[in-house]
């Protein structure tokens, strides 16, 4: 994809050289001693006291001068196309999530996926890498294939109908967002307009597992109600298991 990578911290060059050697980093690690550029760009983390109070950490000299954690994507002209910053240092995008959402390219890491079907509606769930690491943000994708002549309802649904939704059942340390879906369309359900989906629908949920617990089986709950012009099925509730290998944080 031809993307140059630069990483900036306040470390002196010899610290960065040792780190690059140890971790096999070949892209430039830039040394902003005194956090001069970090300050000039307005990226100095000046909320340390409040953050440290929250985490119960004592602020010491090494904390002064750290930037907010995040990244900018620049286009060919050097214009900021996108920026992704985190509220705290431990959280970060997984590489495949970065490639897919920021660089909009295909990720080459192995994925994990599972399938289920009910009332002719097929549901495929996948995570864009086959392992989790604490505080790494992963992307769960839900692909729903609805046969022609059938629709499912969107949330919030009316009249006792069940709208399409998907949740990750809690595991220890799970930090999950809500299902992001494309806008629904208006479906003429036997003369009554209702919000729903037809054809192929893909949604996603951001999540992280913030406690290492070895390999994990996530259970993905998907519910929807499929209807044709003639009949409505009872609400479907699928529970799809998805395996993720556990990989702990690197600790030196």
């Amino acid at each position: 994809m031809g993307v140059a990578v630069y990483a900036i911290s306040y470390d002196p060059a010899d610290v960065l050289a040792a780190f690059a050697l140890k971790r096999g980093v070949t892209f430039p690690l830039l040394s902003d001693v005194g956090s001069v550029v970090i300050r000039r760009l307005g990226l100095l983390n000046d909320h340390l006291d409040q953050q440290h109070a929250y985490f119960g950490v004592e602020t010491t000299d090494r904390h002064r001068g750290i930037p907010h954690p995040g990244m900018f994507l620049l286009d060919e002209d050097g214009v900021v196309q996108d920026k992704v910053f985190e509220q705290q240092h431990r959280t970060r995008l997984s590489a495949p999530a970065m490639v897919e959402t920021l660089l909009r390219g295909p990720s080459t890491r192995p994925t994990t996926s599972a399938l289920a079907e009910s009332d002719g509606v097929r549901v495929a769930v996948s995570v864009n890498q086959d392992f989790y690491r604490p505080y790494q943000k992963l992307l769960l994708t839900v692909r729903i294939t609805i046969p022609q002549g059938t629709h499912v309802y969107a949330e919030p649904s009316s009249d006792g109908l069940t709208g399409l939704n998907c949740v990750i059942e809690p595991v220890e340390g799970l930090d999950a967002g809500t299902l992001e879906l494309p806008p629904s369309s208006t479906i003429d359900a036997a003369g009554e307009p209702l919000d729903g989906y037809e054809g192929d629908v893909a949604g996603r949920i951001w999540f992280a597992i913030n406690k290492f617990q070895g390999d994990v089986t996530l259970h993905i709950g998907v519910r929807y109600q499929a209807c044709t012009d003639f009949l409505c099925y009872p609400p479907a509730g699928l529970r799809i298991p998805l395996e993720l290998r556990g990989v702990d944080l690197i600790r030196d």
């Binding site: 140059a4 900036i8 911290s9 050289a17």
Partner: peptide
């Protein structure tokens, strides 16, 4: 800014009209 080898890197000159990811992180130590 100097890189890990002490070589000065001018961001926009160095990327040679490539797209770039500029990452800010806490510390390597």
């Amino acid at each position: 800014l100097p890189d890990q080898h002490g070589r000065p890197v001018d961001l926009h000159a160095d990327r040679e009209r490539r797209r770039a990811l500029v990452v800010f992180f806490r510390s390597a130590s």
